[in-house]
Design a protein around this nucleic acid. Sequence first.
DNA 1: CTGAAAGCGCTTACAG
DNA 2: CTGAAAGCGCTTACAG
Lengths: 343, 343
Amino acid sequence: MKKITITDVAARAGVSKSTVSQFLNKRFDYMSKETKERVEVAINELEYQPNIIARSLKQRTTRTIGVIVANILHDFSTRVIRAIEDYCHEEDYHVIVCNADDDPVKEKRYIDMLRAKQVDGIIAFPTSKNTALYQDLITEHYPFVFMDRLVPGIETDTVLLNNHEAAQLAVDQLVANGYRKIAMLAPPLYDPITPRVERIEGYKASLETHDICLNSSYVISARLEEMEEQIEKLLSLSDPPEAILALNDRVMIQLLQYVKDKQIRISDDVAVIGIDDVTFASLYTPALTTIAQPAFEMGKKAAQLLFNQFHNEASQGNRRVYRFSPQIIIRESCKRKENGALQ
Amino acid sequence: MKKITITDVAARAGVSKSTVSQFLNKRFDYMSKETKERVEVAINELEYQPNIIARSLKQRTTRTIGVIVANILHDFSTRVIRAIEDYCHEEDYHVIVCNADDDPVKEKRYIDMLRAKQVDGIIAFPTSKNTALYQDLITEHYPFVFMDRLVPGIETDTVLLNNHEAAQLAVDQLVANGYRKIAMLAPPLYDPITPRVERIEGYKASLETHDICLNSSYVISARLEEMEEQIEKLLSLSDPPEAILALNDRVMIQLLQYVKDKQIRISDDVAVIGIDDVTFASLYTPALTTIAQPAFEMGKKAAQLLFNQFHNEASQGNRRVYRFSPQIIIRESCKRKENGALQ
DNA sequence: CTGAAAGCGCTTACAG
DNA sequence: CTGAAAGCGCTTACAG
């Protein structure tokens, strides 16, 4: 039951460990056909599998990367991970998945452990709170890329949505359908997470473009558990909004739950549009108009950037921010029934 | 920029590597306060982080496990992974996530590579096709547990749903609401994946219990792309079903898409119930009655079983199958409007 | 209480 | 064309 090693193979084949190692690494340049075959036979007979850990120790590469997301249960994260894993699989790499739960302590622990395990690089949805640590990674030229969120002052490859454009697409669509009283539903902003901040900014800027005055009671920012209560208030306003923009999928779900409970009819009573294309958007009634993120492309890009960092140290100097364009998927939830004023 | 090693720490502290190692492993029994402090200071000053790869080589444990799912995009898999990762995080383990896409070749490649990387164990949703390989794992006493699917002839810890009960709960609920013409929508059965086979068996057995004759044109088994076509046929039958049981979430989504496109009203025109609690079940109209799997508990159990295998070799003999009970969540999609005959 | 030495299983110049 | 030797960075008996 003892694990067989390169030494066993060498003995069996009657050659040295060096030769076996050359074989394993496909360095056949100076190897006679005969020894090559002998080694091959020995490997097969013994069902030898090299110990990658030993190789990693010597070669200082583990062919493994770490991916730290806030929560793998979030749809966007799952898709990004799938894209990264696909890319890694092609390149014969593996991915360790970690859930930091937006907790800086957990994040730091993961980053430290991942590095101790010598992973070749990390892709993270940063909590943005471990600035000193991120800075260390940079000064040590450690390969890493950020996803979804920008961290002020940290210059590393970052891939994220053009959030401004996403909010703008949503507002434009609403305005084009004749809505001008547009509310925004957002998660809490006390920790300034890029997509939230930028989408709200985008919303405000777009309103301005359309000469719509910002009504501050129309922008709700609350924890998911308090969302229903906030929506209730919003809709009870003396001058309630005619349309609601949900900042992300989780907010959208809260909104739809509220709407269901109160028997409010979307589109008739209030128009709805959401950033993030929820899985059930097309089968909901009315089908939900959404602004989709190209999650797979974004994940793939992140992986490519990381691998670029592996291969050329030069890339250190010019790490960049890559913005991906969202795509509007027009369905039914913000059409006016009466084919409303195209203003 | 050179990585600092245990040798550097030893030099700095003026002790041997052995002593530093003892310190790292918290073996303080015979260490003087003074040297202990010296080592501690050196470690902090140098910001030393041990190389886990080197340790792993010696200790023959990587504190890393592999999880092979069919597809991380599937909701159930995601939840299971989350539960496993949480458990591992508590135990200071990491998890490598792999998507086998129900492809035995990919699965084999992952298992081989994961083992080459010396992961301490594997949790897999098996394709069930690599029987020889699974058997090898057993004879080598390699720790692994199967999830969601049973593999005939392979005696290892397996955690899965009580699928029979799941189908039965669904049929019972339908019958209790006065439905007797009950169709079953399933994915293809050419590869005999446990949940599919068992849920269909459960469906058939339950019908029998209720003295309902099986109508073979009521059981549809088709690829997702052909599902709409099949549903069309099903509902065009001269004697169409009054209720439909969706075998899993993906089938349910196809069904809902069809229903939406054809403007069929669930509950009024046809009752619907599904195994797997889709995320939007409660906010859909009518809210969907579903049979939920305890995904988190199942994932946690799988992790526990794997860790048990690490800790006691004895467990080899008595690996078992753990069935989890589904839970029915009664909502609105299979209630009769007219408060139908409680038969 | 601490250190020298061997060893985990590979790879890699280098010598021949 | 092939092998002996050193080394990757730890841990672990064992000696003192």
